[in-house]
Amino acid sequence: MSIISENAVYFIIAVAIIVILLVWSYVTGRMRKDFSTTTWVLIPVAIAINIAIGQIVVTLKLPVFLDSIGTVLVAVVAGPWAGALTGTLSNIIWGATIDPNAFPWFPVAFFIGLVSGLMANAGWFKNWWKVAVTGFVVALASAIVSTPIAVYLYGGITASGSSFITAYLLQTGQGVVQAVLSTGFLVEPVDKITTAMLAFAIIQGLSKRFVARLPRPENAEVEGGASQTQLFIAIGVVILLVLFAAFMLGNILGG
């Protein structure tokens, strides 16, 4: 009971932060600017991109999901709330049309959109290595948010393939929260960094005039520097991030 109430405090703090952010962007009028007609038309396309690419990835039998490229795309060009909405509706529609098992995971998609939008607003979507960092931060958020859902709804072991890792960690005597969280930290970064990089590549491929008419063209401006060098820095950053993740994982499992 005491663990539950402690977690309830975290939950309430998280909700409070979101509400404050929401009210703030509403009061400043930024929200209305972000949700232009173009944004409303872009969101269904982005959701369809999420689902279509998710299915292509299945066809190609790749070991990632890549089902939030559209969400990240909207978050960058139309702000965190548009991204959060795209993610949420993506899951709801996925649940309503393809597989009802997708419903309960909508908060994860919400945070993928929100966090990537906030990162982009802070200027972390302007070149390859910054995009990699954004992808990593999104992965952390995604792992953290999916943990309570996996624990409370599914008792820790969900229907996804990565549950074998969780199951193994449970067998080694880890607590259920630690096991689920560690699985998330192991699995998410590869997926989310790839997602962010693909979204970046797509935005770079769009015409400048098209991007200029979206609500937040400034988030998609590329910073100078040769793209080759950028790519090497990006790879270096990814390696560092993976090492960092391994370190964190060691700490979680050790503690």
Binding site: P44, V45, A48, I49, L89, I93
Partner: peptide, 14 residues
């Protein structure tokens, strides 16, 4: 608008 048009775009996209 978003929900209904998504439901119609997805099959086209697929």
């Amino acid at each position: 608008y978003v929900i209904i048009s998504t439901l119609q775009i997805i099959p086209q996209m697929q």
